[in-house]
Design a binder for these strands. Structure first.
Lengths: 400, 400
DNA sequence: TCCCAATGGTAAAGCTCCTTAACTATTCAA
DNA sequence: TTGAATAGTTAAGGAGCTTTACCATTGGGA
């Protein structure tokens, strides 16, 4: 792959690579700590650190004194290691965060709007990017990667993106302006990655994130990496067969039209018709009265059981260690017991919890993806499993 | 992990490891070929080869003469690299194959019987193993791994194995007798691995194998490795929610009772009731008359559509590159067009083909798993993702 | 105040595993 | 018989690690 638009990082020794990875992943550390953790001798560690300092990838960040003995120096990621930007480009909000490759936040920009035509929405991404870069201190201006999260299935051809060409034009301009790799990712996948690294799925090795809100989707994270399938469609559970029985055949996107927030409210409306009061106008109102209003509780419990069926489908195919449920509807802990029961009844017991990151999950995940990509580039590895915009062949993305 | 019962293989240099892996995977080769393929210099290659010859892992296997120039020597896997055994322990048949770690077949034993109680079935495995080892030439007696494929979900606790304790006793005896690692794997997973490496999914990187017969199951292979999920339950699609609609709730194992061969024959029986002729007594008879008999064709097409729904469920969660359909019912190519249509209608187009290995798939896959494990051990890597019987703690398997 | 145990860091030498460069060995065909 | 082509070895050297020994800095106690 010729990435002529980005300069190649220097080739590092194995020891330097290990040190850079350790500090980027686990935070600042001293040479003795690193020697112990990575099993390198003292001279090797000195060489590795000075190699990384030379390139500005590492920088001293404090002195440690114990009860006795010589002081040690704590090293953290240096400014030349670059910064990354994650952007959550949603239907009513763009949220961008810039961090170093160690994840330390440098700047944040958030802008909301009434639903916009795609083209204008895409152009706002350009504004947000220039805004957030303006907020970054000058010495931290070595941008190394941008990740944009979109509420669409991201295949290498971007076939399923509405207004595809418009977006490719924006990408071409961004690529021209910033001269860095630009990765696209599905927003639910990003949220899954965020919950995995910094949310409810910390300390697990294999988690899935089910987003249940207006739309329905899933992200799969295995050993810290997103699982995307062959063309980015893994986790597109809105396509699961529903309804399906001896007498009924599935409809395309049947799950989404049955389990989406709109359908939930419509069912609530139907039920309320026979009553004097007005039906709840949005799902949070529905959940607000769930403990006091038997009708609401009935509707919610039925929804929980159906989410449980959906979860059971995922369990029977994937057998995850943990399921994190999120999204406007899914994040209500009230749903959990019934979801768990249904999964256990149909498959086997699985840990199921609600997400912790709420509506920040997607940006945080986009940033994480950018960090992973940037770090892999510094380390000379190839960051697999991401869709990279390639200016050379703007008609298709490159799977890297 | 202390595997005191097996002696540790020698530590090899990187170059020797690469050579051993290349020959085990791609077959015999000469030093110049290996140098070119692995990017090692001539002196390094000489050193690597003589290192491997010293341990008996490699052996000269022929001289090549070209039109001009010195002859070269082709090296193949040597006898000290060990042999492995894969066993398909089915309900009416035990089939075992012994090969070298390069996959070259050394011996084969097959025995069929009327359905037996589990205990007797397990004990037959012991007989088959001693039979097949007796058939191996004496100089190839360095057994290094046994894989047993079972028609059950293999979790680390073996919780879902009927007659669990009986089987553990057999394993303990086998472990004592042969002093080698014994791995257990689900038979469908094995078949998936076989189709991936030597069957219909050759030249693909991410394939799933759907077995549709008496039972229903799936195996997932990503980049040459089985994907098992957290406790071996990935691909247990018999647990997918079915029936599921606005009015119906799923039953445990609903898919299997609806899509299994038994249900198919029952539906056929129902349909035939209104006719003069007798209903087909097994599924192969049903498929034999499918072109001549409209009733049969109707039933088969309906079945195909439902298999398509099942496939769509897998596609929406996993997005595989290729689906291989096998099993007593699934291997009929007649089903393919309708399966493809259904998947495309609900998700997106996916390559779908029938399996090529028929009822040898499971043994072949078991052997492949054993080869992978044995090779990884020789190379000093840890073969991840397999369930290894551990004699120390016979009550649970170790996930390696 | 000065010494010393404890800890952090460096210098020197050497080992392993790879390379390049130059050579030798073997083969077939002209 | 000679030489072009290919296979393989020898020798020298370098990268990147280690071990061993030493030097440097610290706070506490004699």
């Amino acid at each position: 792959m010729s990435q002529s638009y980005v300069k190649e990082p220097p080739t590092l020794t194995d020891s330097a690579r290990a040190v850079l990875r350790a500090i980027a992943t686990d935070g600042p550390a001293t040479r003795p700590q690193l020697s112990a953790a990575l099993q390198f001798s003292k001279p090797t560690m000195s060489a590795a650190v000075s190699e990384l300092e030379k390139y500005g990838f590492l920088t001293p960040a404090g002195v440690n004194r114990g009860n006795v003995g010589r002081t040690s120096i704590t090293y953290s990621i240096g400014s030349k290691a670059g910064l990354v930007i994650g952007v959550d480009c949603g239907t009513t909000r763009i949220h961008a965060i810039a961090t170093g490759i160690d994840g330390l936040q440098i700047a944040e920009v958030e802008t909301t709007y009434e639903p916009l035509p795609d083209s204008q929405r895409f152009e706002r991404v350009e504004t947000v990017l220039s805004d957030i870069l303006a907020k970054c201190p000058a010495q931290r201006s070595d941008l190394s990667c941008i990740v944009i999260a979109l509420p669409n299935m991201i295949s290498p051809t971007l076939a399923r993106l509405p207004n595809r060409q418009r977006f490719l034009d924006v990408l071409a301009r961004l690529s021209e302006t910033y001269q860095v790799p630009i990765l696209l990712e599905n927003n639910v996948n990003c949220a899954a990655l965020a919950e995995y690294h910094q949310g409810a799925a910390r300390d697990h090795s294999f988690a899935v994130y089910m987003q249940i809100g207006v739309n329905v989707g899933m992200g799969i994270v295995i050993d810290g990496r997103l699982f995307r399938g062959f063309k980015g469609g893994a986790g597109e559970i809105a396509h699961l067969p529903f309804p399906w029985s001896e007498s009924e055949q599935p409809a395309p996107l049947g799950v989404e039209s049955y389990l989406g927030a709109k359908a939930l409210l419509e069912r609530a409306g139907e039920t309320w018709k026979s009553k004097a009061q007005e039906a709840p106008g949005d799902t949070s109102k529905l959940f607000a009265i769930v403990e006091s209003e038997p009708t609401a509780s009935m509707i919610v419990d039925r929804h929980a059981r159906d989410i449980g069926n959906l979860a059971a489908a995922c369990v029977s195919v994937l057998d995850p260690e943990l399921i994190v449920v999120g999204g406007g509807v899914g994040q209500n802990a009230r749903l959990l017991p019934e979801i768990r029961n249904t999964v256990e009844r149909l498959c086997w017991p699985v840990d199921i919890v609600v997400g912790e990151l709420s509506n920040k999950a997607t940006v945080v995940g986009a940033v994480r993806l950018a960090m992973d990509f940037a770090l892999a580039r510094l380390l000379g590895e190839n960051a697999k499993a991401a869709f990279l915009f390639s200016p050379d062949q703007a008609s298709r993305l490159v799977s890297v």
